[in-house]
């Protein structure tokens, strides 16, 4: 497949994530949309790594595997981020009895 299809697919997924962050007020759904944006970036990174591999495989047999390892590390960081973020959302709910993201505009009280 041409790389341009993957670029367009990833951009559309990323923009859907951005629209979700802007439109929804439920903190959990905003968080899910952030995950969606991360995944769009991951998909594009893997597609680029395979493009790089196809071009440079004759010079370097493992060309492009760096990109896939970066995706792996992005997943690692995303897992850590989700655990802390969901803890914050649970704490928000415990303090305000709501998951409205507008309550996060003042971090005290």
């Amino acid at each position: 497949m041409p790389i341009y299809y993957y670029i367009v697919l990833a951009i559309v997924l990323f923009c859907i994530g951005i629209v979700g962050v802007l439109v929804r007020r439920n903190a959990i759904i905003v968080f899910m949309c952030i995950e969606l944006m991360l995944n769009a970036v991951n998909l594009l990174m893997v597609a680029f790594s395979k493009m790089h591999h196809l071009k440079n495989a004759a010079i370097n047999a493992s060309a492009g595997s760096d990109g896939q390892l970066f995706v792996f590390f992005i997943m690692v960081v995303a897992a850590a981020e989700v655990s802390v973020g969901l803890a914050i959302i649970v704490m928000l709910f415990r303090n305000t009895h709501s998951v409205d993201i507008n309550f996060l505009n003042r971090l005290k009280h």
């Binding site: 041409p2 790389i3 597609a47 680029f48 790594s49 395979k50 493992s62 390892l69």
Partner: peptide
């Protein structure tokens, strides 16, 4: 991005073994 370089470059779909566990594990 539509005017960018190499937008027609192909991605390797079926072949290529860089995504396999063996290769990635060695580099990791």
């Amino acid at each position: 991005l539509s005017k960018a370089d190499q937008t027609t470059a192909l991605t390797q779909t079926i072949g290529g073994n860089i995504g396999l566990v063996e290769n990635l594990g060695k580099i990791l």
